[in-house]
Design a protein around this nucleic acid. Structure first.
Lengths: 134, 134
DNA sequence: CATAGTGTACTATTTAGCTATGACAGTAAC
DNA sequence: GTTACTGTCATAGCTAAATAGTACACTATG
């Protein structure tokens, strides 16, 4: 329902990802009608102009389709949706691996760290045991 | 030597990470003198005021120490440097795993994907969705 | 002392992002 | 037609980020 906004990234981009995630995970399905500009603006407590910009970008990426006077709909091209998922996952993967390598972690370490983080019972909070061997 | 700047993140934050990376990887060692505001500004082609802000933040985080009239130096506390590495790695890990889970990937999948990406011989081309937001 | 190199402070300007507000146009249902 | 939704456009104002330029204070060196 709501989003935690990161002050260091433009809101309209964060909302774009929010919508994309909903599409990728099936919360919004191909052909579904999307919340109107004003509705989403009210729900997220964001100015309609900002939502408008979000949708303009999504349309430019051919992720949503607009029918003036009617509303917006998730693209009917299923292949496009698969593409979005690959693209987003690829971006996450790149950022992570590049980032870790820039910090000096070896490839083997990176795999281990992820495996541990995923296996591990979620600790109450705390340091998250990134396990870096120098 | 230089940085690729991402337009969607403030420059001063990107330079902060640039410095932190140099410290973590040992390019800059504990106690080392850091490039002056004007030198770094010239090298990165960035306004000195922006560099100044970068260093102010780094000092607030106790990563660098300033001696007026002399220059800036990497913190003498080795433990602090370890802390930075853990912190940065933890952030990367969190963003990656949370992001992948938000996209609907199961924990097992995430580990596999990383293992593959690391094992894999870098393909000549391929999508991998690099698409860093312009 | 003078000089050169440091950090620091200040004003001014530009730009992007976001907000506030109002207005207009297309579509469906009554 | 009227009403109530849609998307769209336009104006104005605010703030943070970054730039440009100038000036001042501290420190070491000679």
């Amino acid at each position: 329902m709501s989003i935690e906004f990161d002050n260091n990234l433009p809101i309209y981009l964060q909302i774009m990802n929010y919508i994309k995630r909903q599409i990728v995970t099936g919360t919004l399905k191909s052909g579904d009608k999307i919340l109107s500009v004003r509705e989403l603006a009210a729900e997220l407590q964001i100015n309609p102009n900002t939502i408008q910009r979000t949708f303009q970008e999504l349309e430019r990426e051919e992720i949503v389709e607009t029918r003036r006077g009617l509303g917006r709909y998730v693209t009917s091209e299923e292949s496009k949706i698969m593409g979005i998922k690959k693209e987003m996952a690829g971006e996450l993967l790149d950022r992570f691996i590049n980032g870790m390598q820039e910090l000096g972690f070896a490839e083997q370490d990176i795999v281990s760290i992820v495996a541990e983080a995923v296996t591990e019972v979620p600790e109450p909070d705390q340091d998250r045991g990134v396990n870096h061997r120098e």
